[in-house]
Amino acid sequence: MEKHDFYTEHSNGYGIYVLVWMTLLALTGLTVAVAGMNLGGLTIATVIIIASIEGYLILTIFMHLRSDSRVFLLFVSVAGLFLLISFILLFSNCSFQ
């Protein structure tokens, strides 16, 4: 990769990061509020989905995964896929025991 490309691809302004930070705080407030409600199994799903959205925002915006080399995206995807497969296998095993 050319050096010029490296130093220009991550040049976001201050504003976008402040906006993402405010979104992250709002999502944290939302997840705390949802956890306080008695929604049964839906609480777990909602809290995990909101945490995943927060993680996605940090990975793509703060860590520049969206605009960075595809190789880095591959690393995170492989780790995510590996964990997902392990999760499915483990819980399938637990469910049938």
Partner: peptide, 11 residues
């Protein structure tokens, strides 16, 4: 974020 969700929020 995940530790907070799994330990503190899902009770």
């Amino acid at each position: 974020i995940f530790l907070f969700s799994l330990f503190y929020l899902i009770t």
